[in-house]
């Protein structure tokens, strides 16, 4: 019988999760080890974001368990099929996130707070791919950044590497 934990989101929704799934988060693992996790574990993450985090963790957990159960026979073919499945799943996962930037950024913050390095790295690469080819003005909009340069300053900085702005 798997040990279950109850996670409570910032908007008070409860998620029942297996220990193995949630222990991928170093932050929660530490809370469990310290004995701070009796009853519900309160997290500073919204229910919408937490659902996404758990979706990721369950997928990763699924993959590890299957690998453990495999014997060597036919492993290669199976691995190849699995790799395709994971790719497909990851593509779907990223497409959903690309469509909703707020969720994507919230998920980035949550993966940082929960200490999930694999998810954090995956999301950073996703944002980097989205950023590629964009002009500074679009970047400011995307990251909600105010341009604190005066027009003269901006012109001077642009001129330092003027060639980099050419296609």
């Amino acid at each position: 019988m798997a040990i279950m934990y109850a996670l409570k989101s910032s908007d008070n929704e409860i998620f029942e999760v297996e220990q193995k799934v949630i222990e991928q988060s170093e932050t929660i693992k530490k809370m469990i080890e310290d004995g701070a996790a009796t009853g519900e574990i309160p997290l500073q993450v919204s229910s919408k974001t937490l659902a996404k985090v758990l979706e990721w963790c369950k997928q990763r957990q699924h993959k590890t368990v299957e690998n453990e159960n495999d014997d060597n026979k036919g492993k290669r073919k199976k691995e190849r099929d699995e790799d395709d499945d994971i790719k497909e799943w990851e593509n779907k996962f990223s497409d959903e996130l690309k469509a909703d930037k707020d969720v994507l950024f919230d998920l980035l913050l949550a993966s940082n707070y929960l200490d999930l390095p694999a998810l954090l790295s995956f999301l950073c690469q996703l944002v980097a791919d989205m950023v590629a080819g964009k002009m500074p003005e679009e970047i400011r909009r995307m990251f909600n950044i105010e341009n604190d340069f005066t027009p003269e300053e901006e012109k001077a900085i642009t001129a330092e590497h003027g060639w980099a702005f050419q296609p």
Binding site: L109, C124, A128, V131, A132, P136, N144, D148, T158, A164
Partner: peptide, 29 residues
């Protein structure tokens, strides 16, 4: 929308090409 902390921004930008990063020097101070 949430603002990302500096170390996440650095992680994202560290995956970009040099030419692009030189352009993004003028995004903000």
């Amino acid at each position: 929308m949430a603002n990302l902390p500096q170390d996440i921004i650095a992680d994202i930008l560290s995956r970009l090409e040099v030419k692009q990063l030189l352009c993004y020097r003028c995004v903000s101070k």
